[in-house]
Write a protein that binds this DNA or RNA. Sequence first.
DNA 1: AATATAGTACTGACTGTTCAGTCAGTTCAA
DNA 2: TTGAACTGACTGAACAGTCAGTACTATATT
Lengths: 236, 236
Amino acid sequence: MEHATADNSKHRADSKAKTTSKPPRRRPEARPDEILDTALDLFLAQGFHRTTVEQIARGAKLSKGAVYLYFASKPDILLALVRRAVGAMAERAASHLRQHQGDPCLALRELFHVLTKLAQQDQSFAKVPRLIIHEAPSSPEVAQLYRDEVIAKVLPALMDLLERGMHAGHIRRLDVDMTARCVIGPLMAHLLLSEVFDLRPQSGELELQRLIDTQLTILSAGLAPRQEGDHVSGPH
Amino acid sequence: MEHATADNSKHRADSKAKTTSKPPRRRPEARPDEILDTALDLFLAQGFHRTTVEQIARGAKLSKGAVYLYFASKPDILLALVRRAVGAMAERAASHLRQHQGDPCLALRELFHVLTKLAQQDQSFAKVPRLIIHEAPSSPEVAQLYRDEVIAKVLPALMDLLERGMHAGHIRRLDVDMTARCVIGPLMAHLLLSEVFDLRPQSGELELQRLIDTQLTILSAGLAPRQEGDHVSGPH
DNA sequence: AATATAGTACTGACTGTTCAGTCAGTTCAA
DNA sequence: TTGAACTGACTGAACAGTCAGTACTATATT
């Protein structure tokens, strides 16, 4: 967010800065990010539809017209926002899953661990999933972007991991597609319940950590190769 | 959707229907449901924001003004829609969970079974969760309504079921709050992935059935009281 | 050093459109 | 002849997107 800036105002800059207390010129290259940062907060607070371009402009200390120098339309801002946050992250998660050898549960534990760390450190990193879950359902473009940039990369990697785990006998044979959905389901549901329906678990702190622990406990045992008389379910 | 109707057109009704082939008068009592049915389909096809009251009126063979004889505002239509579909159903599911004795996994299996049956039979029953997942995230009122009418009834019942199951030794002791989220998570995620992100599992048919089978298999083993060397996870 | 020229960054009043909601008036059965 | 059901043209407000014009800086010219 903070670029290292080459001061291109030459020798005149400091002389003037001393005499008049003129504030240093704002750097135009930073404008797009400033607009996006403001928009992210507004979209989260009020939703995309209830946020006007005028508000975004004011938040970024600009006039409405200036916003259109950097973005073609209001939906374009939303898309740029998702694009900025999403690309590299998904690639990293997918390759992490893909490279892992051995018990899939361990790979999942590591991945979850990294993600929660990131969410705690970087404020704006945690905001993006919230934005997506709020806007994707009513905005096909956002949904498609997120699907193509994130889910289409991570989900196959996860399924591949599970498939290999089944093949190597680390976990029991099950419908891979559905197992993947069972693995990520609780995280999604947690997000949905917390964000959309404002239903947080009773004891406040460490929600995410506790969810992940519980889920991993269930999965470790639930996915373990069958040992004795576990009643398994055929269709019907 | 079809009300049993007391025919209040008295004795003249049939005589007229015989002589003139005048189409039977449309019953005004049916108007609200007709409007809601039309609105449901339009909201699902285009989303709430992109649907105009004019379109709803036309679909229900009415003028725009007439819609406002039955509903106070456009958001009011959305709320009435959710309210109509949601009330009784949640109550039934919750009491089913509450009354069950014995292994919670069996209760879940029965519940899932009933729900899939219903979803297959009644078209409009299946539409409502889709509507809610699309509109709740951008409409606080819908989210609140759904939370109060459905989640606030079902989730505690589920947690209670799990609590009793843990107490009786049918399932292992875990964080009840989070276990509940792990139980319903896969269903929610499935809905989100299918509906919002348009990601359906590769082999088309019986998705829901296969998801539920997989999830129940994982849960049966995953929630079973620990038997031997299952590596359990403490925090960190 | 003073003045012209070019060009970028930005402003904010304005336009056009969309649409929720209204209401004076119409239709028609009873 | 009453009144419930309904019509559809209209109003007002909100807002995305535009554009003629301003401000300010950097470089070129005299």
